[in-house]
């Protein structure tokens, strides 16, 4: 990497990602406790691990399509969901910034390698789940 400011940008992105994510999680937890549950489940159902395991109260039951309606209904579970997904996307931005800066340096070997990494990431997010369900 020729342009050494990339490292500073990456560092800010990582820090911002963690801060945004953790604040969503904390807000979500507070709402969860105030409302005694979320997404149709009570807190005692969620915190009983074996009950949750047997009845599928987990990330599978939280529909990502309902994030917007969940947030506007001030549902704690959806705030936590957003927080966790921001967390998942945070390291991906590093690869993306790397990709852009390799392109800037005309380092096409590494543009290709970063593309493979990005492909793997989106493969895991979009393609693999279809086979699992």
């Amino acid at each position: 990497m020729k342009n050494h400011d990339d490292e500073v940008i990456i560092s800010y992105f990582l820090k911002a990602g963690v801060l945004i994510s953790v604040s969503f999680i904390i807000v979500g937890v507070i709402i969860l406790f105030v409302k005694n549950g979320g997404d149709g489940f009570t807190l005692s159902q969620m915190s009983n691990y074996n009950y949750a395991l047997a009845h599928g109260i987990d990330s599978k039951s939280v529909s990502l399509n309902k994030i917007l309606s969940g947030l506007s209904a001030i549902d704690g579970l959806y705030f936590i969901t957003v927080g966790l997904w921001v967390l998942i996307f945070t390291p991906i931005t590093v690869v993306f910034i790397g990709w852009v800066s390799f392109l800037d340096d005309k380092n096409y070997l590494y543009v290709g390698m970063a593309s493979i990494v990005l492909f793997n990431l989106f493969f895991a997010m979009l393609v693999v789940p279809r086979f699992l369900i």
Partner: peptide
């Protein structure tokens, strides 16, 4: 992040 997204769809993540 790669593993987490697969875990997510499999329901391995209990939000609590």
């Amino acid at each position: 992040a790669t593993g987490s997204s697969i875990y997510w769809y499999e329901g391995y993540i209990n939000l609590f």
